[in-house]
Design a protein around this nucleic acid. Sequence first.
RNA 1: GCCGGGGUGGCGGAACCGGUAGACGCGGCGGACUUAAAAUCCGCUUCCGCCUCAGGCGGAGUGUGGGUUCGACCCCCACCCCCGGCACCA
Length: 841
Amino acid sequence: MTEAAPRKTEARTVQPGHPALPRYDPKEIEKRWQKRWAADGLYRTPDDAPQPKFYFLTMLPYTSGDLHVGHWYAMAPSDTAARFRRMRGYNVLFPMGFDAFGLPAENAAIKEGIHPHRWTYDNIDNMRRQLKTMGAMFDWSREVRTCDPEYYRWNQWFFLKLYERGLAYRALAPANWCPSCQTVLANEQVLPDGTCERCGTPVTRRDLEQWFLRTTAYADELLDHSKIEWPEQVVAMQKNWISRSEGVEIAFGLDLPAGRHGAPGVEETEIRVFTTRADTIFGVTSMVLAPEHPLVPKLTAPDRRQEIDKYIEYARRQTEIDRMSMEREKTGVFTGAYCKNLLSGEDVPIWIADYALLWYGTGAVMGVPAHDQRDFEFARQFGLPIKVVVAPPDWDGAPLEQAYVEPGTMVNSGRFDVLPSEEGKQAIADYVEAQGWGRRSISYRLRDWLVSRQRYWGTPIPIVHCPKCGPVPVPEPGLPVLLPEDAEFKPTGESPLAGHERFVNTTCPKCSGPARRETDTMDTFMDSNWYFIRYLSPHYDAGPVDPALARKWLPVDQYTGGAEHAVMHLLYARFFWKALRDLGLVDGDEPFLRLFNQGQILGPDGQRMSKSRGNVVAPDEQVSRYGTDTFRCYLMFLGPWDEGGPYAFEGITGIWRWLNRVWNLALSEPPAGAADPVAVREMRRVTHKTVRRVTEDLERFRFNTMLAALMEMTNHLTKARESGPVDAAAWDESIDSLLRMTAPAAPHIAEELWTRTGRPYSVHQQSWPTWDADLTQEEEITLVVQVNGKVRDRLQVPADIEEALAREMALASPRVQAHIGGRDVLRVVYVPGKLVNVVVR
RNA sequence: GCCGGGGUGGCGGAACCGGUAGACGCGGCGGACUUAAAAUCCGCUUCCGCCUCAGGCGGAGUGUGGGUUCGACCCCCACCCCCGGCACCA
């Protein structure tokens, strides 16, 4: 590729009062520079550059096949910020890859008869092509595809490391089952309304042997975000999701009367509950067990058995939707058994009810209707006594209309009476611990991550089930356990791999006897746990990452992506990183030091874009009409990046016009001659102020105001040129800065103009301009004069005006005098450089 | 219900640390160029009222109602609405 130069055949536009200029033709320019940059390896990130490293990561796309506006909205501003970093002297790593495993590939295969492998790789090729039209500085030499065996091999390797450490385990558990996807889902993948986040089908429960990763082992550490700069919103969502509660585990005595033993030999002598309200223990009037609680069959009275069984059956049939529906009346059944409140000595009837959740706390709730709204409703429903033990202020002993959950003074609580309930909480916890009836404990809402999936297009779990040895890890030389190409992948509820004889039948690595492979595959969030580590050395085969490069590049300095991943990817990835840290594979406690969530781009109607609504904006179409640079800038100009918002087709012309003005400005000779010194100083002031504004805006990802500042500068230069001779040096400085500052947002036009104005290739290897604070000083300011806080006059005064003079001028203003109207001046407030406020009355 | 974020012209949005509300852009209106249109360029454009109307003057105004302050889009209190998340978590 030769140096770009204006060609004779080019179309020209005539500017009023200016010689004919070549026309701005983004199509031609953009294609040409993309080729040149690729040929020159301009965006290859060296591992050994002397500059400080900066790892700028943006979330990789799922291989849906088409790059939509949402991708552009996420990536173009990220690219701009990364380019800015680079110009500021950092060695910036800005990689890209493809999240390539997952259900859609399989569904497409079933629907259209294309193999998931083929579907995925075709999509990758198309998306890579589309991504390249963005003109981003992605280092394609580091591309990662998560469905490549050389990638998922390390998923398996990690899995085995976690398994060795007891962080991966298999357990029988009631799992979220999507009848449509025919697979289990992690809790995070069930929407609040109880439907599958992928297909919207109501999720049901199934008891299944599943693989889990022990995320709860890191619950407390995951709750600590003090080492990272993340949006408050995401931090709040993670905290909320993990939700730590401090309380006490307390035993209730279980001494079943003869004849009440459901089964011979009930060895348990207690039921343990978890409570955060130990202070209310004297108010317990029922014990509520989750229907699936293991003690239930043992302690149910024979005459209650039928009803209890019916209720258990009813509870397990509930979909998440039923179970979560609001305003539902409390249901439950009495077991016929009692337990003993060890503190009060009272007998307490044992019930089962589905508002007690097996997985939370101990799966058993002490029912305190007076001080817990759920228990209150339950007691009302079944006529259980409501015993007040924490007196509300001014309580006259009347029955409560609803649970009183606030602190108060303890009553009816034996030796703890009269204590403030907050103190009572501690006193009772101490007492319980001293008596050996329980201990303080912590419960989390967070549950372990269910990672196995009964689907084909994913990473096979590298375990062999041997009838003699049980589950046996595949030894490292046996990795990767390859996903067979020729599987029948119709969903049956069992993994499609289960029907693949050659895959399933194997020998036990331990005893060499016949054995069967695990046929479940891993959740695709496993892939996104560490893809950013693989970018560093995508083809390294002695480990998941070249350790030297891991030390150099990790952790990620800046991560950008959508907030929808707050409690899935972003939580799993933090967990995973911490596990890797403890395995000695990475250093540091957090994978992503800074996070920024862009908002969501909506259709022109303000609704989520969807084919069915017909409000989808096709990026390719916008690009072919206006060019990549215009489209990139427009996405950034729409509004604050973290807010997202509707895409308005009309507005893009504003950016288009602006880039054309920049084009004309840079290529036209300004009128020569002796320039007015005031105008020269003004031009330099505008330029240096703009450099400051743009720099500060880019640091904070405020692309919309950055572009507004560049437009203002452009407008100023246009006017300056119209209104007389221009100082050549000041003009050159302005154009130079303008082009450098335009380069991150509109890389192609900036490069073209940079070259056409005789500057050395490439603008993207130039340093970012700096500003001179002295030159940004205004000579004149507008002094606002207020009377009683209302603006009454504006005076043009020298910036360094003396206070006395300013006050004098303000009071002398006829407009101000008119508004004072002879009233007494009480005081005059002077704010240097801003205003004078005359207070009268 | 709880936790975050937000409510500013016709529209997207701007406003530093409490000091000119409406930058920048779209749209609209008027004008220049053109046979014409497109494109481009220039001017005006928060609302209301008034006047001696190329201009000028006054009032109101940042979801609502209060408060603090010389001065509030910004701080405080109460409330309404919108968006996102969580929601029987003991």
